[in-house]
Amino acid sequence: MVFKARYIALIVYLLFLLIPIYWLLNMSFQHNSEILRSFSLWPENFTLNNYARIFTERGWAAGYVNSLIYVFMNTTISLLVALPAAYAFSRFRFTGDKHLFFWLLTNRMAPPAVFLLPFFNLYQSVGLFDTHIAVALAHCLFSVPLAVWILEGFMSGVPKEIDETAYIDGYSFPRFFITIFIPLIRGGIGVAVFFCLMFSWVELLLARTLTSVDARPISVVMTRSISATGVDWGLLAAAGVLTLIPGALVIYFVRNHLARGFALGRV
C-alpha cells in the first residue's frame, strides 16, 4: 500500500509541474483570436503561425541571438578565471583563503538589484552600455562565484597524488593543468558550464537595465511586446516555448554528471 501511495504522490506532483508547461505549448499553437474566443484543452485549429512570425520578424530573432551571445561570453569568461582559482582553493592554504571564498559566495547570494545603479553608470561611463560584453561582465557577479564553488568541489575529489606524480615526471604547471587535470574534471566543468549558462540565460533584471536596442535580450523583447500592442498571447507563448529549448539541450549533455553536482549541494 505504502509503495503505491508513494508513486501516486509523485505522479500528482509531476503533473503539477508539467501542466503549466503543457498549457504554454497549447497556447503557442493557437491564434490569439481563438485563445480569447473559446476555452479549449487542446488547440482546435492547430497553427504554427506564431512560430513563423518569431522567426521572420526582426526584433524576435535578434533577441535570441543577443541572449545567446552574452550567455556564451559570460560562460567563457567565468570558466577561464574560475578554473585556476578553484584549483588554488582546492589544493592550497593561503592567507585569507577562507575569507576570500566566503566573499565570493556572498556575491552569489547578493541581489542583482543592489548593483543596478552603479552598473548602469559604470557601463555608461566606459561606453559599454547596450553591448553584449556589458551584460556578460555584469552576470560574472554571480556566475564566477558559482563556477569557482562547483569546480572546487569536483577538484577536491581528485587525489593530490596525481598532481605530485605529474610534477615529479617533469610536467610544468600549465602543461599538467591542461593535459592531465582538466580532462580529469570534465564532468565538473560540464556542470559548471551548465549552471553558468542557465543562470545567465534566465536572468532578467541586469540584462534589461544594461541594454536598450542593439543588445536587447529575448526576455526583454518579450516583456516589451506586452505593453506595445495589447497582448498577443499566442505569440508570447510561442516565444516562451522557444526559450525552453537551450536549457533542455544543455541538460541533455550533462545529464550523467548533474546528480553528482547536486550531491555536492553547490548551485
Binding site: 509523485l10 509531476l14 509541474l17 508539467l18 501542466i19 503549466p20 508547461i21 498549457w23 504554454l24 497556447m27 542557465m198 540565460w201 534566465v202 536572468e203 532578467l204 529575448i218 526576455s219 518579450m222 516583456t223 498571447w233 508570447l236 507563448a237 516562451g240 526559450t243 525552453l244 536549457g247 533542455a248 544543455v250 541538460i251 545529464r255 548533474l258 546528480a259
Partner: peptide, 25 residues
C-alpha cells in the same frame, strides 16, 4: 532518469517566462 529530467524542467525556464507561463495558466 525520466523523473529527474521532468523535475529539472522548471529550473531551466527563464525567470520572466515563469511569470508568463503562470500568467497564461
Amino acid at each position: 532518469a525520466i523523473t529527474l529530467v521532468a523535475l529539472a524542467l522548471p529550473l531551466l525556464v527563464p525567470w520572466n517566462v515563469v511569470g508568463t507561463i503562470w500568467q497564461l495558466f
